[in-house]
Amino acid sequence: MREQLRARLHEVWPELQIVAEAGNGIAAVELTALHHPQIIFLDIRMPSQSGIEAARQLLGQAHVVFVTAYDEYAVQAFEQGAVDYLLKPVDIERLRTTCERIRQRIAVSSQASTIRNNVNRVNDASGYSNPQTASHNEQIMQLLNQLSQHQQPKRDYLSWIQASVGSSLRMISTREILFFQSDEKYTRVQTDTTEVLIRKTLKELEDELDPDEFWRIHRSTLVRVDAITEVVRDFRGRQLVQLKNHPEKLEVSRNHSHLFQQM
């Protein structure tokens, strides 16, 4: 997801310099202290420390844009709040709008800083503070508290697949699975070294698997995201996914081509 966001940011805001990337909330706070960025794109659900917890520590240090796959309640909360948000997978036009808003906010902040510095030079003992900034931070803190109260507990996603092979039962970790592909009666489970068939439908699997780990790229195909090495186009213009340690290419349907919009 970070790679996808980086590619789309480069497309809509090529002048933007990405100074660091973090894999969790703790690293995000530490890297912010090190690099002092103007903008932070922050996923809500992260290991070690959530985006909500990280945002509380980062309040007032940068313009925060939340990236979320949350439900309708959270979207409504963001719409009424003082921060920008993006839904996963990130739509490039929505990202373009968000970046334009950030540009405007940075310009306003720069003007306010100039005015504040001028006022401080006139009366540096007045204890002057910017009430608009304090109000903005208060709005953000209220939003974070609101999201914390309604934050959905982390689901226990499927981590093992049971498959009957002859007279035995095979246990396959989802971390080993490259993709699932279904036909009318069975679903094919493909790993680096083996292929088995199960009777669980693709719809059932999609509901039980972590959506950050497995994407539906076709009505008949679910693929593990970190198994993808590249996406290419064939002579007919179709997007085809190439996987690690597997020669077969998987077609991306038109309905799911938005997952790879930068192509």
Rank of each mutant, 00 (worst) to 15 (best):
L5I: 15
R8M: 14
R8F: 04
L9D: 03
E11A: 13
P14Q: 06
A20G: 14
A22E: 04
N24K: 02
G25T: 04
G25V: 09
A27N: 11
E30F: 03
T32I: 06
A33R: 11
A33L: 12
P37A: 00
Q38L: 10
Q38Y: 01
F41C: 04
F41T: 05
I44R: 06
R45H: 13
A54C: 11
A54W: 04
R56W: 06
Q57P: 02
Q57E: 15
L58I: 10
V64R: 01
V64T: 15
A74V: 14
A74I: 09
V75N: 08
V75Q: 11
F78N: 05
Q80Y: 05
G81E: 09
Y85R: 05
V90R: 06
D91C: 04
D91I: 05
L95Y: 03
L95H: 00
T97I: 12
R101V: 03
I102A: 06
Q104K: 12
R105P: 05
I106E: 14
A107M: 11
S109A: 14
T114M: 11
I115Y: 11
N117Q: 14
N120R: 13
G127M: 11
S129L: 09
P131T: 06
Q142S: 10
L143R: 07
L144M: 04
S148M: 13
H150D: 11
H150Y: 13
Q152D: 08
P153Y: 07
R155W: 06
W160N: 12
Q162T: 13
V165K: 12
G166E: 11
S167T: 15
L169H: 05
M171R: 15
M171N: 14
R175V: 12
I177T: 08
L178H: 10
F180A: 00
F180K: 00
S182A: 15
K185N: 14
Y186K: 13
V189Y: 01
V189G: 01
Q190S: 01
T193K: 12
V196C: 10
L202E: 03
L202A: 07
L205A: 03
E206F: 04
E208C: 05
L209P: 01
P211Q: 01
S220F: 09
T221Y: 07
R224F: 04
R224A: 10
V225Y: 08
A227I: 02
A227V: 01
I228K: 01
R238D: 15
L243E: 01
H246E: 06
E248M: 08
E251P: 01
E251R: 02
R254Q: 12
N255Y: 08
H256V: 00
H256Y: 15
Q261T: 02
M263N: 05
